[in-house]
Design a protein around this nucleic acid. Structure first.
Lengths: 339, 339
DNA sequence: CTGTTAGCGCTTTCAC
DNA sequence: GTGAAAGCGCTAACAG
């Protein structure tokens, strides 16, 4: 018994029915009408296909059509809950179009992501969905030049003209901060990653905006917008912020929030009494903390839907409009901001 | 400018250098020696390939070779942390072999998983890695019959002869339970999913074993091994167990543990004083709970490594031995079991 | 040492 | 209404 259980081909059906291969191809691709194939013939061929359990050979089809019916996705790390939930939604959306999704994780490493992208393009993906990493403008531009349909998700570069779908980061961050203020906290600080990626800048600037709106612009020294990169630095960032007299914190990502909560717990700081908190993206860790944590929720399913919609437009219709979509987040208020 | 920026082909290189296509093919596939191509020629061709930025057309290659260099993976749900971490590891392992991974989520639904599998096979994947869902023996057997290399991961069916890689579930569960007992808890209970999947049966039976070993067999009524399926039932499962006089709990999965901790927190039960706890797989939620939770850790990276190793053996070498691997877990003890 | 040739399975143009 | 034939890019058996 051979491993490659050679499936029935058009030829097999043609022989079986006693007609030409092309006729079978027409019928099985719903081009029967167009070629005015007789009803009788159509029936016979479809029956035979059914009987022989015909499955089109996707390699041949791809070779011939220059299409793979696969879209490639490069994200930060698929084992990160935020990205894995995006992954799941992308998978579901793509499926609606009969498309499969090939994932790879860049680990926020530019070289690595370039390799992954090259690999995916080599694999013949019909389009690319990217969570671009820092300073990868040139990479994104290079992809653009290949003419491959491309949509960025979660992040974008203001100086690169591409499709993208992301959260209204600035606004959500502003809203979160002003909510903290409205709850009676007077000295909120924030912790974000030390990166030039736009979504982080926006989250920081939303915080700043809220502070200005509240007439606390003067209070916002750079030291209230702490940056961190490694896990260790979170602890020291919190120390410094507390030393500044901060009474509440906005965490710019889920990871930062989770790490920070760990630190806060270990320090025995009381939430929300001593410290008010808002995080990003929710998750069971937020709910199991001493007090449920308020958070900014991203409409992940919607983001995925829009992203796939855009890319499929380009792939199928060949549309070349640029879609830049900002979806609206939701602020979910729990106990951690109830002073 | 065309979308399909038609890449350089073997033909282009052949024309450029002024030789035949096959010669180019040999050289570029490292069969130069074998065909005793002259050094000079090899150099020229490789240079030309470099210069024209040749990239083999993967569709043609696949069509010709009947191989896609892709492996398909069907798991429960890629947005579940346990599976997304497996996904990530599988991705990394496959990459070492130049293979890509196509994921899909079955949601523990047999019909759905059958569709996904069929789809992946249609896509021409060279092998399949499955987290099989309940009662899908026949599906697995069907895959086996196609002759496609197959490895099950996380779970297996005792009555189906396949490759698999899973945790030493019974032993870990036994160890966890006996550890609970050794810590001074006398009435441990357990909560597992209501399923006939072997890994769940094993986790239950490990618990039972430990109880027998401790001379508490009589104490183990069925009611101490609660089953749950929906979220709501967890709450009632815990209620019943507490009513039975249970003073500690072993949760058979990460999800069950997380849900349960939520319930326990809401009930205001003191851990580890009133209730000792051991969960599965760890995660930040476990660490942020009032007291860090002890857990059984699965060597996910190792599992992925073994799985890919086995499947690549079959794909590349055509090996047909059956590998059934049980990897060893680790019991990580935290505060939740220190009475 | 190098070239010719025959497909892999499919789509599609053109001819009858 | 139906069929013949070319060709997508690649590999490999066979010639020379």
């Amino acid at each position: 018994m051979k491993t490659t259980k050679t499936h029935a081909s058009l030829k097999d059906i043609a022989n079986y029915v006693g007609v030409s291969i092309s006729l079978v191809s027409f019928v099985l691709n719903d081009k029967a009408r167009q070629h005015r194939v007789s009803e009788e013939m159509v029936r016979k061929i479809k029956e035979a296909a059914e009987k022989l359990n015909y499955q089109p050979n996707i390699f041949a089809k791809s070779l011939r059509e220059g299409k793979s019916h696969v879209i490639g996705v490069v994200l930060s790390d698929i084992s990160n809950p935020f990205f894995s939930s995006i992954a799941r939604c992308l998978e579901d959306e793509a499926e609606k179009y009969g498309y499969s999704v090939l994932f790879s994780s860049s680990d926020e490493n530019r070289e690595r992501s370039e390799k992954q992208i090259a690999h995916l393009i080599n694999r013949g993906v019909d389009g690319l969905i990217l969570v671009p990493c820092e300073k990868s403008q040139s990479t994104v531009r290079a992809v653009l030049e290949t003419g491959k349909p491309l949509v960025l998700i979660d992040r974008y570069f203001p100086d690169v003209h591409t499709n993208y779908v992301c959260l209204n980061n600035r606004e959500m961050s502003r809203l979160a901060t002003s909510t903290i203020l409205a709850s009676g906290y007077s000295h909120p600080g924030t912790i974000a990653y030390d990166t030039t990626l736009q979504h982080m800048l926006d989250r920081r600037s939303g915080y700043r905006q809220a502070m200005e709106d509240a007439g606390k612009a003067a209070f916002v020294s750079e030291s209230l917008i702490r940056e961190c990169d490694l896990h260790q630095s979170i602890s020291s960032a919190i120390d410094k912020l507390l030393a500044e007299g901060v009474d509440s914190l906005l965490f710019a990502t889920n990871n930062i929030a989770t790490e920070s909560l760990m630190v806060i717990k270990n320090k025995g700081i009381n939430v929300p009494g001593e410290l008010g908190i808002i995080g990003f993206d929710g998750g069971s860790a937020f709910d199991l903390f001493q007090v449920p944590i308020s958070y900014i929720q991203q409409p992940v399913a919607l983001m995925a839907q829009k992203t796939v919609e855009i890319i499929m437009d380009e792939i199928l219709v060949g549309q070349r409009l640029t879609h830049q979509i900002e979806v609206q987040g939701t602020l979910v208020i729990k106990e951690s901001t109830k002073k």
